[in-house]
Design a protein around this nucleic acid. Structure first.
Length: 635
RNA sequence: GCCGGUGUAGCUCAAUGGUAGAGCAAUUCACUCGUAAUGAAUAGGUUGAGAGUUCGAUUCUCUUCACCGGCUCCA
């Protein structure tokens, strides 16, 4: 038996050939035992229980690193399966991977699991963890594995193995339970220091709705209890930000049984809505866009021509007018194209930028509706740019700049891009797609922008660049999109007259920046937790007279501020100041103006931000300047 | 659409096989108040809808609608 060298960073250790890294840790780094879950060499993960046959130059994977925690969670899913099998013996197991923030395992069981079962399962899991049972990896050949799982009645595993092409498959034993698994895993169950089962949900076998619905149990695991607690707090925090809850509290919008998926905008919500549109319109006018509005219901024939009938009919609503078939628009482009076609266009007009705040309807399955994030009716901040092929890149660049300016103004500093290419079910020739995809990719490269590639995720008529923004608690939302379309111009046979006096086919860029106004407002609500920046806040200022004697003066100030176009209200209730402040904060008013004898005699207003305790006394003739500065700073 | 859960006053939630209560909000009255809740009184509900079991259903059963958590899909 020879010795081999294990190099870890600066340090070197000796190990008996055939021994494993776990023994190295036990001997040399006893304190680190549970915090190292695996090792890594050149990007390959090495489990701590793997026998080492030659010299290695490795890094440790710590249980708190992203990679380490995934291993931990994956192993926890096995432990959960072990526990479930022990308690509910006839249960068959499907798959149990780690996810971004935890893990799940899909089960097929005669028992309907419910959250009360979690206690039992968790207790059983804890027993397994306390026993520190090793994960033992074995390889057997495929046929043998199929026989084994057939004998055990684990038909889902059999189906999985049948699709594996390797001769050998790996199994992991963990006490009473053996699972087909590629790994990697932690050496033994004792590594799990903090875990919790979270929820139960149905999930189709292999994600296909034609297959059987299995029961999925979600859970999460962390390297220590503190991290688990922090995660649970974060979930609570996300709940606090839920736009459905805040929207109700702030009277922004409502959903009623009479119109599932169709938002009703209340007065406060309309202020937000219109403020956003005013801002948007001003910016687009400055950028050379012209605005149009096209009808919501159009003849069904149009949708055959556009390709929507073939590619989007499942999501469309249909109706009948004078015995003719009509459809409710799910997108704005076909209507916009009719306007373009109405008249002759010269190359001198290009690029022609036509914007439309278009109200679209899409039939979404009942189970997917979710507040403003997933609705059946929404307004897109759409625009179609008609241009020559040569102008595409320049125009795409201009749109990207505009997108970045707008996100920045709304307080979103972290934006990432994705490029999606031709989907399976698409219209247009190979050449057209190639040109379009190339144009988008090159533009991104020329701007030196980092982007993620999503092959096959494009729209049916063209490839697209999507914009994702990150909110205050790190969640990512897709909003903007730029789609390059050579097809629709062809289908609608649109043209412009070139310098040569001949007809030419323009290219069409579809683009939206906020995406859906409804959804964007939902994102804003969650990002700001309802505490909007001054320029957006439905109620910007609330005046709080200390007693009845100050109400008259408050009205004077209210008029003054209203004349300067600020949104201001007076709290005329007979509460004490403390009570009024509390109410204003609950209502998420942006600024408070306090009015008492002091202010009355000096002709001033004491201003404070609702959630800060700093007061500032502002003279009446300086009020407009004071608030305008806040408004323009967009904070 | 599928799986599971939920549905009681404007909001948050109690309760029971014998037709429902609290806090906040609302209304009225008193207090005239300086930075997160002044006190009192009043009013408010076909218990999501429909059917069934029962002497009697908000409670049990079924159907249906909506919502919540997922799956699939997506702006």
């Amino acid at each position: 038996m020879g010795e081999i060298n294990i190099k870890i960073g600066e340090k070197s250790y000796q190990l008996e050939k055939g021994d494993c890294l776990l023994n190295l840790i036990k001997k040399n780094l006893p304190n680190a035992k549970f915090s190292i879950v695996a090792a890594k060499e050149n990007g390959n993960t090495i489990e701590l229980i793997t026998p080492i046959e030659s010299d290695l130059n490795i890094q440790w994977i710590s249980s708190s690193s992203e990679e380490g925690i995934r291993i931990l969670r994956h192993s926890t899913s096995h432990i959960m399966a072990t526990a479930v099998k022990k308690i509910f013996g006839e249960t068959k197991v499907a798959i149990g991977p780690s996810t971004d923030d935890g893990f799940y395992y899909d089960f097929d069981s005669n028992t309907r699991f419910n959250e009360e079962d979690f206690m039992k399962i968790e207790a059983e899991m804890q027993k397994i963890i306390d026993a520190d049972i090793p994960f033992v990896k074995t390889f057997i050949n495929r046929k043998e594995a199929i026989e084994k799982f057939k004998k055990d009645g684990e038909l889902y595993k059999v189906e999985l193995i049948e699709e594996i092409t390797d001769d050998k498959v790996s199994l992991y034993d963990n006490g009473d339970f053996t699972d087909l698994c590629r790994g990697p895993h932690i050496p033994s169950t004792g590594y799990i220091k903090a875990f919790k089962l979270l929820k139960i949900a149905g999930a189709y076998w292999r994600g296909d709705e034609k297959n059987k619905m299995l029961q999925r149990i979600y859970g999460t695991a962390f390297a220590d209890n503190k991290s688990l607690k922090a995660y649970l707090t974060m979930i609570e925090e996300a709940k606090e930000r839920d736009h459905r809850k805040i929207g109700k509290e702030m009277n922004l919008f409502g959903f009623y049984q009479e119109g599932p998926g169709f938002p009703f905008w209340k007065p406060n919500g309309m202020i937000l809505y219109n403020t956003i549109l005013d801002y948007w319109r001003k910016l687009h006018t400055d950028e050379g866009y012209q605005e149009v509005k096209t009808p919501i219901i159009l003849n069904e024939e149009l949708w055959h021509r556009s390709g929507h009938w073939d590619h989007y009919k499942e999501n469309m609503y249909f109706t009948e007018i004078d015995k003719e078939a009509y459809a409710v628009k799910p997108m704005n482009c076909p209507g916009g194209l009719l306007i373009y076609r109405d008249g002759v266009h010269s190359y001198r007009e290009l690029p022609l930028k036509i914007a439309e705040l278009g109200l679209v309807h899409r039939h979404e399955k009942s189970g997917v509706l979710h507040g403003l994030f997933r609705v059946r009716q929404f307004t897109q901040d759409d625009a179609h740019i008609y241009c020559t092929e040569e102008q595409v890149k320049t125009e795409v660049k201009k749109v990207i700049n505009l997108v970045q300016k707008i996100y920045n103004d709304f307080g979103f500093k972290d934006v990432h891009l994705e490029l999606s290419t031709r989907p399976a079910n698409s219209v247009g020739s190979d050449e057209i797609w190639e040109v379009a995809e190339k144009a988008l990719a090159e533009t991104l490269q020329e701007l030196d922008l980092v982007y993620k590639l999503n092959p096959g995720d494009g729209a049916f008529y063209g490839p697209k660049i999507d914009f994702h923004i990150k909110d205050a608690i790190g969640r990512s939302w897709q909003c903007g999109t730029i789609q390059c379309d050579f097809s629709m111009p062809e289908r609608f046979d649109i043209s412009y007259i070139g310098a040569d006096g001949q007809k030419h086919r323009p290219v069409m860029l579809h683009r939206a920046i906020l995406g859906s106004i409804e959804r964007f407002i939902g994102i804003l609500i969650e990002n700001f937790k309802g505490k909007f920046p001054f320029w957006l806040a439905p109620e910007q200022i609330r005046l709080l007279p200390i007693s009845k004697n100050h109400v008259e003066y408050a009205k004077e100030i209210k008029n003054l501020l209203q004349n300067f176009n600020f949104r201001v209200k007076i709290d005329e209730t007979e509460d004490k100041l403390g009570g009024k402040i509390k109410q204003a904060r609950l209502d998420r008013v942006c600024y408070l103006g306090i009015i008492g004898d002091n202010e009355l005699s000096k002709k001033t207003l004491t201003v404070r931000k609702a959630d800060k305790e700093e007061n500032k006394e502002v003279a009446l003739d300086e009020l407009s300047e004071f608030f305008n500065e806040i408004k323009n700073s967009k904070i």
